[in-house]
Structures are given as structure tokens and as C-alpha cells.
């Protein structure tokens, strides 16, 4: 599903930049659920940024869903992004769009029919428990509600690869439990999922193979 071979990444360029990841090699298969662990500054967000095609690795080989990222054309990268769902730590909701429009955005970029979009949005928003807040603006929501909207937007198009950066941060225990159950269900359906967290409690409660980083190096790759 994705393979990294000897991947390095430095902020601000390869030579003068600050190294965030060094010589990372990973191979994660379809339908796997992986925790991405490590303390702050370990490189978790950098690794997720490379996998979500937000940044390019400075060196090494990155292959996602069979596409060699470093050699791919821009149009192919855009198509690949449509198969990757990402839940960012800062949610990245557009403040001038309603909750409905924020969640509908990925489907609209895929030119789906408006009736189909409305059906999908209502279904996913019912699942995250925000079906009554469709017309609200993100800034009118609590942190937990915004996180649920961000999750809904990331999973609405059933991505082949789902990346989540601290997705349970703003959720209560019940919501976090529901989210983890959904992640496991999606993995069973074939979605590869990588969840970055430094919440040891939730990792213990939902045990799964883990990738552990420290100071930009891969220290453990549990299976």
C-alpha cells in the first residue's frame, strides 16, 4: 500500500535545512492499521506530510498506492491525493464555508452529483453526531465538533489510505471509542490507516502494530 525506502526530509532544503527525518524505510500493506508513535519533535507530522503528499521527501524512494511519488506527474499526484484522506491536527476547515460545504468539498472536487453529495454528507454527519449542525460555520463549533467535521471530510470519499494526526485530541472518551471502532471497520474493508498519537492510554486500550520514531529516526517497527 505504501513503501518508503531510505527516506530523509529536511525543512528548508536538503543541505542547509533542519533534518526532520533520516533514512526511514517502511512497508505497510493494504488494510493495515498502524499507530505512529513518538514524542513531540520525533518526526511524526513530517512523515504524515510526506505520505499525504503535502511535502516531497528530500531523498529516498516513496511509493504510495503503487505510484512512485518522486517521478509522478503533477496531474497523477492530484489523482493520488483523491485516494488519500487526511485528518490534520489543526483540522483545516474553511471558516467561510458551512459544515455541509466543508464535508462536501472532496466529493465536489471529484465532480460527483449534488444529490449524491447531499446523501453522503447527511449519512456521515449523522454518524459523527453533527447532523443538526450542517449550516453552522466551523468557528461556531467546539474543538471536538470541529475535529469530528474534519474526520467526516477525511473519510467521506472512502480513501484507500487514511492518515490522522492526533485525531482523538479534542474528543471525549466515548467519541474516541466510536472513532477507533470506525477506523478498525475501515481497515477491515481494505483502507490502510496510520494514526499519529502520543496518547499512551488510547494505544494501550486499542492495541495495534506501531511505527515508533525518535529524533527523526525509525526506532521500532512493530508488527
Amino acid at each position: 500500500m505504501f513503501r518508503l525506502h531510505d527516506v530523509s526530509y529536511a525543512y528548508g532544503g536538503n543541505r542547509a535545512g533542519v533534518a526532520a527525518l533520516s533514512h526511514i524505510s517502511l512497508d505497510v500493506a493494504q488494510g493495515e492499521f498502524r499507530w505512529l508513535l513518538g514524542p513531540s519533535g520525533a518526526g511524526k507530522s513530517s512523515l504524515l506530510s510526506i505520505l499525504s503528499l503535502e511535502v516531497q521527501a528530500s531523498a529516498g524512494m516513496v511509493e504510495i498506492l503503487g505510484v512512485p511519488v518522486m517521478q509522478a506527474r503533477r496531474s497523477n499526484l492530484a489523482r493520488l491525493r483523491r485516494r488519500i484522506g487526511t485528518v490534520w491536527q489543526d483540522f483545516r476547515l474553511l471558516p467561510d464555508l458551512s459544515v455541509f460545504d466543508n464535508v462536501a468539498l472532496p466529493l465536489r472536487l471529484q465532480h460527483r452529483a449534488e444529490d449524491e453529495i447531499a446523501h453522503e454528507v447527511h449519512a456521515i454527519m449523522k454518524w459523527v453526531g453533527l447532523e443538526n449542525r450542517l449550516d453552522a460555520r466551523p468557528l461556531q463549533l467546539s474543538g471536538g465538533e470541529q475535529q469530528r467535521v474534519a474526520i467526516a471530510r477525511a473519510v467521506i470519499y472512502r480513501p484507500a489510505l487514511l492518515l490522522a494526526d492526533e485525531p482523538t485530541n479534542a474528543l471525549d472518551e466515548r467519541q474516541a471509542g466510536r472513532l477507533m471502532a470506525m477506523f478498525h471497520r475501515l481497515a477491515e474493508l481494505g483502507t490502510t490507516i496510520v494514526v499519529a498519537t502520543h496518547n499512551d492510554a488510547i494505544v494501550e486500550k486499542y492495541p495495534a502494530p506501531a511505527i515508533e520514531l525518535a529524533h527523526g529516526h525509525l526506532v521500532r517497527d512493530y508488527r
Partner: peptide
């Protein structure tokens, strides 16, 4: 720029 970066990350083509 924030909105553009977001829809770019969601798979919008440059041509779009």
C-alpha cells in the same frame, strides 16, 4: 492561499 492549499491537498487539479 489557505483555501487553495487545502483543495490542492484534497486532489484539485492545477487546471481546475
Amino acid at each position: 492561499r489557505q483555501a487553495i492549499a487545502l483543495i490542492h491537498s484534497l486532489g484539485a487539479m492545477d487546471s481546475y
